[in-house]
Design a protein around this nucleic acid. Structure first.
Lengths: 164, 164
DNA sequence: CCCCGATAGTTTAGGCTTCAACTATTTTGC
DNA sequence: GCAAAATAGTTGAAGCCTAAACTATCGGGG
């Protein structure tokens, strides 16, 4: 039986224990869901979460996105996107085209096959999430969504303080 | 069944958008905090989150833990722990000792230096989390903690269904 | 006692991720 | 115009992570 960070935190020294417990539970929750989604993407579609996420970005922008756009939207480094895009292109799910107006830039688009693949994956994915969070009532989901919004705002203002 | 991109998106079965939005917000929240913690661990202590987590496990069990224990508690593969432990040992933060009763097993313990290092990191870490979540009031933290507990239970029962 | 299944760790191959250094191109400021 | 700064993307080194195959050891049932 697998323990987790939260269970293991029996007693921490005094201070900001509350916030720490909250963070550990948030992390545990996110990790549980994410691990299951990764697992299902692998066994059902032989793919990975980052690939899925990149396709999802392209799906929302049929006109194409530059690698830089994708990097910003996915909040990952641009070196990361280089490799991801290379693998997806090799698999024939995306295609690149050098920009007509900026020879440094290239835009990525789904191929027809990429679009078909993603449609299947996306439908399944939505079902998985609904299944995993199905134990919550609509009111609970709403309240959780709102509080997470507050938490997000708190974090972002915390980051702001030591800004550029 | 030929369906194009627009259809796939606009036509997704109703009712599951809610759960998806909730999941995406949960993920964003966790990622924001985690990325900031990773960043600070790197710039302030030149270390990483997995290293920190492993030390945290050992800190709570002065008697030592086997690699398998750590693997279960951290919810990562045992091959992963092999590598982490090797790096921490090389840095002199951790020491291994082969079990007296089972020659397959070895237990890991903090070295004095490891204990000192972790104490510094841990104190800072706790402060960072408190700072990032400081925008929430105590009642909000409490409510969020409770709802995340409900979410965790929902996910775990969702996993149970396709269990061993 | 001995084989056999279970358990503890390691190894390997491959993917993900970052940072920092690099190339190529575009934009800006003078 | 043109040098300098900014931007787009690639590369390389290093760490993290997994699944699967492997080694070594332990424990129990014949």
């Amino acid at each position: 039986m697998p323990l987790d960070a939260e269970t293991a935190l029996a007693d921490t020294p005094p201070g900001h224990k509350d916030e720490l417990r909250l963070w550990l539970r948030l992390l545990t929750c996110a990790n549980l869901i994410e691990a299951e989604i990764r697992r299902r993407l692998r066994v059902e579609f032989d793919t990975t979460l980052p690939r899925f996420d990149l396709l999802a970005q392209l799906e929302r922008h049929a006109a194409g996105l530059t690698l830089g756009d994708i990097s910003r939207r996915m909040m990952v480094s641009n070196g990361n996107v280089t490799g991801l895009a290379a693998r997806l292109e090799e698999e024939g799910l995306v295609e690149r085209r050098v920009s007509a107006t900026d020879r440094r830039a290239q835009s990525l688009r789904l191929t027809p096959r990429g679009r078909r693949e993603f449609a299947r994956q996306s439908a399944a994915h939505e079902g998985w999430v609904a299944e995993l969070l199905g134990g919550l009532g609509a009111a609970e989901r709403e309240a959780l969504h709102r509080l997470l919004g507050r938490a997000k705002a708190s974090v972002q203002s915390g980051l702001q303080e030591n800004g550029p």
